[in-house]
Amino acid sequence: MAVEKIRGIVLKEINKGETSKNLIVLSKGIGKIFMYARGARKSKSPLMASSQIFSYCDFVAFENKNFYNINQAEIIDNFYNIRTDIEKLAYSSYILELVEKTCPENMECDNIMLLLLKTLSVMSKTDINPRFITRVFEIKYMSLMGFMPETENCVFCGNDSHLNYFSKIEGGVMCDDCKKKGIDGGIISNGALQSLRYILKSDVSKVFNFRVSDDVLYELSILSKDYISSHINMKFKTLDFAESL
């Protein structure tokens, strides 16, 4: 069997037997894959640290049916500071769960991996509000997954002015005239709309380079969570915990 070098980040770890782990890893060039870390739960295992969630590593492994068996691993970054703050840890765990549950298997998604790494780096190395980081990630992630909301023209009539409402079902802004016709949609402020436009148009390297008021962050939180629930029929326990803090 050919040995491969795989760069990836651990999204989930699952105990296997008494001493080993199954891992779900988002990898460069391959996408979401399953890996097996034999003996990783032993106290002296060289794979102990690299098999934990958030570990961004270079793995040396060989493919065996539907799994990659890990021979060795070198940690590039473990985003350690995330683990020292309960709010950062809670929201970062949710971000991993969102990717783990929704990103397709064995399909190259390097753009999503870049976004995830940038997000965890900002979460770990800055004092930016974890809720803000999470909302930006959600919106950018959904767009990369093919669910980009329309922010320039009314999703019903194409009008490009008086865009004061947002339809989570249709996935975009709605004008005053269409709202008057009784079409369902919630109010969106200019601040929230401009934030959406910035997130969607920005390169991943610059996507966190703006700030919003508490009111706009609250609005983005509701909009983002409603938008995700309208397009992804899943529950995320980690999000429930993070939002309870």
Rank of each mutant, 00 (worst) to 15 (best):
A90Q: 05
Y80N: 08
D58I: 15
D85I: 14
A49T: 10
R7G: 02
N15P: 10
L47A: 01
L96T: 12
L120E: 05
M123Y: 09
E63P: 00
N66T: 14
C103H: 00
P104E: 02
K65A: 14
E18R: 06
R41P: 02
I24L: 13
F54N: 08
Y36F: 15
I24H: 01
L120R: 03
R41M: 12
S92G: 13
E87D: 06
G31F: 12
K12W: 00
M113A: 02
F67H: 06
E105M: 01
L117A: 05
C103E: 03
F54W: 09
S20P: 06
F132V: 13
S27Q: 13
K88H: 03
K12M: 03
C57V: 12
V60Q: 07
I70E: 01
G29H: 03
A61C: 10
A49M: 09
D58S: 14
C109T: 12
L116F: 05
K88N: 09
I112V: 15
C57N: 15
Q52F: 01
G31A: 14
K125S: 15
S43D: 05
I14T: 12
K125Q: 12
N111M: 09
F79D: 10
I76W: 04
V122G: 04
T134C: 03
K42Y: 05
S50H: 11
C109H: 11
K125C: 06
Y91D: 04
I133S: 07
M113V: 04
E105T: 00
K118C: 13
E100N: 15
V25G: 02
K12L: 11
L96V: 13
L117Q: 07
K101D: 05
T19L: 01
K44S: 11
V122S: 02
F62Y: 15
M113R: 13
E100P: 07
E97R: 09
K118R: 15
M113F: 08
A37L: 09
Y36K: 02
K44F: 05
G17V: 01
L114N: 15
F67W: 05
I53A: 07
Y68W: 13
I75E: 06
A90K: 11
E74I: 13
N111K: 13
N81I: 00
D85N: 15
L98I: 14
I82P: 04
S55M: 08
K101P: 00
R83F: 04
T102E: 03
M35Y: 09
N129W: 03
K88G: 04
D127C: 10
A90H: 11
S50K: 08
L47R: 00
S55P: 05
N129A: 12
E100Y: 08
I24W: 04
K12R: 14
I30V: 12
N15T: 08
F59W: 07
A37M: 07
I95Y: 01
T126I: 03
I86Q: 08
N64A: 07
A61D: 07
N111C: 10
L47D: 04
N81Q: 03
L11M: 13
